[in-house]
């Protein structure tokens, strides 16, 4: 079913980026069978294009290794890996921010206050870089999920996490101190994909055509 000649786009398997990613692929004029969704790889019905469904954080690895030619991924994932990818298009969805926040009643209100404190996060590299730039040393507690609860539990003094609406912060009575970066979904290409002319780049560049 899959072929080496196909152009392969990696997108998120589960989560908030999947639907808008599929919509974007559709908007380029590529069609696929709805009933196939749920499979790990599907072939577009009207073009030599495959869609590969993988975990969000693995997308850069697929791109870097050259097994996917393009990918749709949040910039936050790229920043955290500390790597550079050629961004072909910013997609305007999946907008979020990586922020540092502390409990509302806490005395930690500035970046300087964070010196020597415990900060829980899943974004250890981004946080570490940010602290280094600001000349702050602190203890980074690596937590893989539900970071927002850790100050209440006495495991951390502040958190560093992705926020979209800010509702979670409100629920857990957390107040932002600093924004590390803003992020949105981007369309990236593999450094190994060097065919200058291809159907994907053409359609992104010259607008979409439903006929092929």
């Amino acid at each position: 079913m899959t072929s080496a000649k196909n152009i392969r786009i990696a997108i998120q398997k589960q989560g908030r980026l999947q639907d808008p990613s599929l919509n974007f692929i559709r908007s380029l004029g590529f069609e696929f069978k709805k009933e196939q969704l749920g499979e790990l790889i599907i072939q577009c019905t009207n073009a030599p294009v495959e869609i590969l469904f993988v975990r969000n954080i693995d997308i850069p690895e697929y791109i870097k290794a050259g097994v996917a030619d393009f990918g749709i991924v949040g910039e936050n994932i790229i920043y955290e890996r500390g790597e550079r990818y050629n961004i072909i298009k910013r997609l305007g969805f999946g907008k979020c921010k990586l922020i540092i926040a502390s409990p509302r009643e806490s005395s930690l209100r500035t970046i300087e206050n964070l010196q020597d404190e415990r900060i829980a996060t899943s974004y250890t590299k981004s946080l570490q870089d940010f602290l280094r730039q600001n000349n702050i040393n602190a203890s980074i507690i690596e937590i893989n999920g539900s970071v927002e609860i850790t100050p209440k539990l006495g495991l951390s003094d502040a958190i560093c996490d992705i926020v979209q609406t800010g509702n979670t912060l409100k629920t857990y009575e957390l107040e932002p101190i600093a924004t590390i970066f803003e992020s949105e979904a981007v369309f990236i290409e593999s450094p190994y994909y060097n065919k200058k002319k291809n159907i994907i780049l053409e359609r992104i560049q010259y607008g979409n055509s439903k006929t092929c």
Partner: peptide, 18 residues
């Protein structure tokens, strides 16, 4: 700066120190 934490968190405090 001085800070008091549970003894059980001591290793992770220093392990995670930047």
């Amino acid at each position: 700066k001085q800070k008091t934490i549970p003894q059980s968190q001591l290793d992770s405090y220093f392990k995670g120190y930047t």
